[in-house]
């Protein structure tokens, strides 16, 4: 049995398990905290700073990121106050200045009632550098196909040397988790193509229904990982 912890979020009493984060408990209790760089499957990274909340522990109140703050017995969490709103607004405005044309960001901005700050010089980027794709590629898929390059102003996500990655299996996990949907994935003429990573791989049809389900590189990777015969792996989940 896992140890339970109880605390309050916005005055409401909630309980979670030890090892969960404040954000996870809030989501389990249908309390909305905006967050971009968080996914249950990977370790919290606290990169996007959207999930800022105030935590009162004993006498001290501090601003923390809910996605990596451990659920602790007796803390008082506030998800909405003047100072949080102010911080969140600037964070979102900075993100919008970095990536001016992201529908997903505009959606959140509308929800939170934040407008673009004209004073912030607009850059022409589309990646918010949350690192979710990189972390999923490393920790969930385990192929290390993409990573960061450089630092500070010139930091970006790419394959090594920005060339076709030999280790990418074109699984599309990065595209799936991207919170702002900027990793396009396309299936055309029997190939699955990921333009951003300069990689394409031939699709293999399911022997039962004929639907495309995995790529050649994926199959090779799965065969090495699981040691299962090819025939078993190529059957799509619907036909299994």
């Amino acid at each position: 049995m896992m140890e339970r912890v109880s605390f309050t979020i916005d005055g409401k009493k909630v309980t979670g398990y030890k090892g969960q984060t404040v954000l996870q408990v809030a989501r389990d209790n249908n309390i909305y905290i905006p967050a971009l760089c968080f996914d249950d499957e990977v370790k919290p990274y606290a990169a996007c700073r959207m999930c800022l909340v105030q935590v009162k522990k004993g006498k001290r109140v501090k601003l923390v990121t809910a996605c990596d703050y451990p659920a602790t017995e007796g803390i008082e969490v506030t998800t909405n106050s003047e100072i949080i709103e102010k911080c969140r607004k600037v964070v979102l405005q900075l993100l919008m200045a970095r990536c001016p044309n992201l529908p997903k960001l505009k959606e959140i901005a509308e929800k939170l009632g934040v407008e673009e700050q004209p004073r912030f010089v607009k850059a022409n980027d589309d990646c918010i550098l949350c690192g979710l794709c990189v972390r999923v590629c490393e920790d969930v898929v385990g192929v290390y196909a993409i990573g960061f390059e450089g630092r500070g102003f010139t930091r970006r996500v790419c394959t090594p040397f920005d060339e076709e990655s030999p280790s990418c299996i074109v699984c599309g996990a990065c595209s799936y988790v991207c919170p702002v949907d900027v990793i396009p994935i396309e299936q055309k003429d029997g190939y699955r193509i990921m333009e951003r990573w300069h990689k394409k791989s031939k699709l293999i049809p399911c022997p039962k229904c004929g639907n495309y389900y995995l790529t050649e590189d994926q199959l090779k990777f799965l065969k090495e990982k699981t040691g299962l015969p090819e025939e078993e792996l190529t059957i799509c989940p619907d036909c299994r």
């Binding site: 490393e138 290390y144 390059e149 450089g150 630092r151 090594p160 280790s167």
Partner: peptide, 22 residues
């Protein structure tokens, strides 16, 4: 050289590349 470093050390090329560019 970076590719060879990755091969011999077993550290993924993405990591080696990140360090070298950082």
């Amino acid at each position: 050289l970076l590719k060879e470093v990755s091969r011999q050390t077993g550290v993924p090329l993405t990591r080696v590349y990140h360090m070298a560019t950082f």
